[in-house]
Amino acid sequence: MIDRRPGWIVRCADVADVISCVGFARDHAMPLAIRAGGHSAPGFGTCDGGLVADLSAMKGIRVDPARHVARVEAGCTWGDVDHATHAFGVATPGGIISTTGVSGLTLGGGFGYLTRRYGLSCDNLISADVVAANGRIITASRRR
């Protein structure tokens, strides 16, 4: 299993905290790991001696049933998303296990129960707000 010992863990409250983490790690040439669901089998959610930006407290979800769109913060698990979308009778391909994080699964493609009909999680991603290594926020989508 994974046996890594981070120097510091930041339980991020918002995007500003994530930007601070990226800047701090960059300025001090430290390893930076992003932990969201904490399900990474290779251990990408932690590091030795560096900084772990723990996004698990960032769990905001807003569902727009008319547009069939959900806006999900990076710390959500698929269980969080399914719980929020179920009330509106909508769903999107998530994983197999409810405790898997949305961010990591989607970045890796994302195979789930609805994949045979609706594709991978990443096929259903409309856009993502990404904190780049220089600390700037980029909205990445098909158009931008």
């Binding site: 120097g7 510091w8 863990i9 930041v10 991020c12 409250a13 905290d17 407290a57």
Partner: peptide, 17 residues
Amino acid sequence: AVQAFASTVRGKVIDPS
């Protein structure tokens, strides 16, 4: 430097050691 960084963060900075 860590203390200065922690003061800019709204969440919690944890030192596992």
